[in-house]
Simulated scan of single mutants.
Amino acid sequence: MARVALVTGGTRGIGAGISRALMAQGRTVVASYAGNDEAASAFAAETGCKVYKFDAADFEACKAAVAKIEAEVGPIEILVNNAGITRDGTIKRMSREMWDAVIDTNLGSCYNLCKLVWDGMSGRKFGRIVNIGSINGQAGQYGQVNYAAAKSGIHGFTKALAQEGARGGITVNAIAPGYIDTDMVRAVPPDVLEKIVAKIPVGRLGTVDDIARGVAFLTADDATFVTGSTLSINGGQHMY
């Protein structure tokens, strides 16, 4: 039986690319989304992927969704924590609500979903978890203290949780994308985007497929010796 993979934020952008890549790998993919019904319906119709609407920042909503997915589709053996939002602003202009929204969605969702699938993965002695971080969680970014903090937190969360799962067949890794050609990046003013691309050694934005290939590698059944790692996919923009 094909392993069930849950991709949060999996109907658009990077998440949609990841969902498609895992389906091509033979996984039974379930994609979650928070609000864009039109995009989710179009994605489901195009791919045949099952979609579920819930707020990944809300623990009780996640609990109900995981129970429903496992009852309707099967046990979740692969989890990709991709859900994320931005609420940018300098610290002077950033409200507590802007801070909380980004921390709860980008970092809190990792806790929520990992917590809810962990016992099942432990019992089956198999699990693959990939958390999507960011180059801005590694290098920082002006006007994004909330986003950078959340993404940096993902990298620490990944390293700690990997140690808990290592002997039980569960691998936990992160991917730190650079600037990827998505709707969010396309919204950047052209002159600013030109300056960003100029700083990328390979000379282009990344694609969703660049990230999806990394996820497919880290979630493979035989990827048993890679855990606690952060795979930077950024065109050489940030190396360390």
Rank of each mutant, 00 (worst) to 15 (best):
M1Q: 11
A2T: 12
L6K: 03
L6E: 00
T8D: 00
R12L: 11
I14R: 11
A16I: 10
A21G: 13
A21I: 04
L22C: 15
M23L: 10
G26R: 06
V29T: 08
A31N: 02
S32C: 04
Y33T: 08
E38I: 03
A39N: 06
S41F: 03
A42Q: 09
A44Y: 09
A44Q: 03
A44S: 15
A45Y: 06
A45H: 09
A45F: 03
E46I: 14
E46M: 11
T47R: 00
K50A: 13
A67I: 03
V73D: 13
P75G: 12
E77N: 10
V80A: 09
N81F: 04
N81Y: 10
R87T: 09
G89C: 01
K92Q: 08
K92F: 13
E97C: 03
M98P: 00
W99Y: 04
W99L: 01
D100K: 05
A101V: 03
V102M: 01
V102D: 00
I103T: 01
L107D: 00
S109M: 00
S109E: 06
L113M: 15
D119Y: 07
S122V: 15
F126H: 05
G127F: 04
R128M: 14
R128P: 02
N131E: 13
I132D: 01
I135G: 05
I135W: 05
N136E: 14
A139D: 13
Y142D: 15
Q144A: 02
Y147V: 05
Y147I: 07
A149D: 05
A150K: 09
T158Y: 03
E164T: 10
A166L: 14
G169S: 14
T171R: 06
P177A: 02
Y179A: 09
Y179T: 15
D181V: 03
M184G: 04
P189C: 08
L193R: 09
K195C: 14
K195T: 15
V197Y: 05
A198Y: 04
V202C: 10
R204S: 12
L205Y: 01
D209C: 09
D209W: 07
D210F: 06
I211W: 02
A216S: 15
A216T: 13
F217S: 10
L218H: 01
A220M: 12
A220T: 12
A223V: 02
A223C: 15
S229G: 13
T230H: 09
S232N: 15
